[in-house]
Amino acid sequence: MVLFFTSTATSPPSLIYMGKDKVENEELIRFGLKNDVWFHVDKLSSAHVYLRLPGYITWDAIPEKLLIDLGQLVKANSIEGNKKNNVTIIYTPHENLKKSGDMATGAVSFFNDKLVKRVYIPTRENAIVNRLLKTKVVKEVDHEAERIERLRDEGRGKKAKANELKNAALELQRSHTEQKNARSYDALFSEENGYVADAPVTKAKPKSKPRYNSDGEEIDGSGGSEGGDGGGSDDDFW
């Protein structure tokens, strides 16, 4: 069984969850997500509490009010820590949790101690603990089925993102092509754009009217009589 809580220290609210016992803790260690952050009382037995990071928050920049909510919940779920003041809560990304076969059930260590941060809780604040307890929901979780569905969702998300990038690249290429064509004089006046150049016009040489000499004989268009020197005659007429 997994216990889920909602913290209103952020907007939108943040999801917090923990295992009901050490056996469930083993499942959470195995199936946690890369955006989960693990919380525990330092050097004391306590519940393993997880924060599922919203997309806009990084594990090393969790808002103080949210850290206090988590610290109070962890402290309240530690038999010994709940009775003490000035309790230290440690937290680290889920990916930094190290689990080997020789460890006891529910026990963990870290791959990198430098990725472990601390928050100090002076005393229990019942107002905070009670607010969180009112949001508690207990669920039976099929971790393997959730993992498979999560991988499918991630695959669909990656495919959608790839298609988005591809379409954006095609649109950019189309835009560049249009801009290039707009700058091209040849393309601007191409037949594809509906432009048809006028065919060259050859002016016909005017045809002269027939001319006749005084004898009624037709002379050529040069103005001379047949066999003459091409000169005009006083007897020519139109």
Results as ranks from 00 to 15, higher is better:
G32Y: 00
R118A: 07
L66V: 00
A107D: 08
I79E: 15
S7A: 02
F5H: 10
A197R: 12
I148K: 12
K159Y: 13
Y91V: 06
L66A: 03
N213T: 10
K22F: 08
N82T: 06
T92W: 05
S11Y: 10
H48I: 05
V141I: 14
R152D: 07
A9I: 02
K83W: 00
A169E: 07
A199R: 12
L97I: 10
K83A: 13
V41D: 03
E217W: 10
N35K: 14
I68Q: 03
E149T: 11
A76P: 06
G194C: 09
N112K: 14
G223S: 00
R124A: 13
W38E: 01
I79A: 12
E24C: 04
R118Q: 13
S184P: 05
A76W: 03
F39D: 02
T10H: 08
S222W: 13
I219N: 11
E80C: 01
V49W: 02
A162C: 02
D36H: 07
N167H: 02
N130E: 15
R30A: 05
A104D: 10
A160K: 15
H40Q: 07
V49E: 08
Y56L: 03
V74G: 04
K136H: 08
I29K: 14
Q173R: 14
R183T: 02
P210S: 07
N112V: 08
S214Q: 14
Y50W: 07
A199S: 08
E154V: 09
A76I: 02
G216Q: 08
T92E: 03
